[in-house]
Amino acid sequence: MRLHFLERTIDGLHAGLALALDAENSAAAGGLLQQLDARVKVAGLFSLILAAALATRLWVIAAVFALAVALAALSRVSFRVLATRVWIGALAFTGAIALPAVFLTPGVALYRLPALHWPITAQGLTTAGFLLLRVETAATLALLLVFTTPWMHVLKALRVLRVPVLLVAILGMASRYILLLLETAHEMFESRKSRTVGPLAGAARRHVAVASSGVLLSRSLQLSGDVYLAMQARGFRGDVYLLDDFAMTRFDWLALAAFLALAAAAVWADR
């Protein structure tokens, strides 16, 4: 049932995004990363992502990944959340991209598929492994930032770190727009379900799905425009201002030094 799959997907995305946007949930956890200044987290986690992206040895990327998992444990981010929100999704999507490399990369054939006789090469497996591990590592580190920092603090930290105002404004509004879009989609499907008795034929299901997509796009465009106008009406001109002042403590400086040292160590070990 394609429509049921759509509904379940939208419900899941809706619940997941609402959770991700809840600053109160993440800030209340009280783990290691939650205690750090947002700027330290943005700079530190980005330096680790960069180290993983530049690494040319698999074990170096694996070490950065292990570090990310350790940070998640110390910050009380549930492994179940990481697995369902990051690891499985990244594995599925990146795996689909990496799969051809396993067969197409020239090298020593380790195994041949029985019917097709396609070779699985050692070099192909290594290439796919690099891609998968890099993506899993980067996605885990990025999610740690989102799950341990209120979204507005991430945006303010980006501005402090000289990210252009336009990009920060787009990021700020994108989260709210996506939530509105998902809420609208959720309500539309609920409303349709309440007026439908019995299963629809395949063609009718496709018709409903396509028509709903068009209406949804149009409504979400209007809503997103309204949100932007509402922000403008209260004085928003592109910059983000928050009540919380960022103040670096000795612990923050130590954490920043540790992040940079670990990233530098990864680059050094990769020579």
């Binding site: 946007l21 109160e24 509105l180 809420e183 309204d226 949100v227 106008l229 509402a230 009406a233 009540l243």
Partner: peptide, 17 residues
């Protein structure tokens, strides 16, 4: 200006914010 639909006007993480 107070908008008709409060949903478009509420985009911060908490009521205080």
């Amino acid at each position: 200006l107070v908008f008709q639909n409060p949903d478009v006007q509420l985009f911060n993480p908490t009521v205080f914010d």
